[in-house]
Nucleic acid binder design. Structure first.
Lengths: 106, 106
DNA sequence: GTTATAAGTCAAATATAATTAACTTATAGA
DNA sequence: TCTATAAGTTAATTATATTTGACTTATAAC
């Protein structure tokens, strides 16, 4: 999540993809950032992953942009390939939230 | 809107699906079971959730059967409505697994 | 500068997920 | 039993995610 300052040799700022702490609830954008961080940390290109998983590059880009209009199966394939997995959290309250309460997720 | 907990005539839960422990990595089937458990625990019918979220019943059934050929956005809407959310686990290993190594997830 | 590789975008065609409506099956009370 | 609600299925249609291929930026090395 935090984009640490980093410069190339011309002094231009470059986005540093840092692995965010995601032990808690997170947004699709944060998940996307974690995926990109893991992939780049493993020094894999989009095409590397795309070809290994038979997923098209535009779809991979959608996933890494946090677009939730993607097939769950594709997201899971990417996550598994990168060594990421979900665990589940439950508000053990019986409350269901309002439908439009927090649209961070979709 | 009909946000009251659904009961049968005696006010008892309809089915009793038990909420599995999902603090660790889980399969889509386990996630599906957790969703069903949470929904029935909240005494909501498929149609209750379906109508509240504008998701069709067949799609909801797919989700509750662990079919991963569903839109991520739809899964997330359901989870949020039921008070479920993901957290992320990472194999801190740099290993990428074989493409077909474990198809539990998809 | 040039070159090479990666990232990201785009439109058209295809593949497939989602919806609709009707239907069957299952469960639990009266 | 009978009745009512919930669960689950199915086929046809609609909506849309995905793919393909080409293309345009970006970034980093030379």
């Amino acid at each position: 999540m935090s984009n640490l300052a980093k410069t190339n040799r011309t002094g231009k700022a470059v986005k540093a993809t840092v692995m965010p702490n995601l032990s808690e609830r997170f947004t699709p954008t944060q998940l996307a950032e974690a995926i990109t961080a893991k992939r780049t940390g493993m020094k894999l290109s989009l095409v590397d992953v795309s070809e290994a998983l038979s997923i098209s590059k535009p779809t991979l880009v959608k996933i890494e942009k946090g677009d939730t209009n993607v097939k769950l199966a594709n997201l899971l394939k990417v996550m598994e390939y990168l060594g990421l997995s979900f665990s589940l959290l439950s508000d053990d309250s019986t409350s269901k939230e309002e439908t439009g309460a927090s649209d961070d997720w979709y």
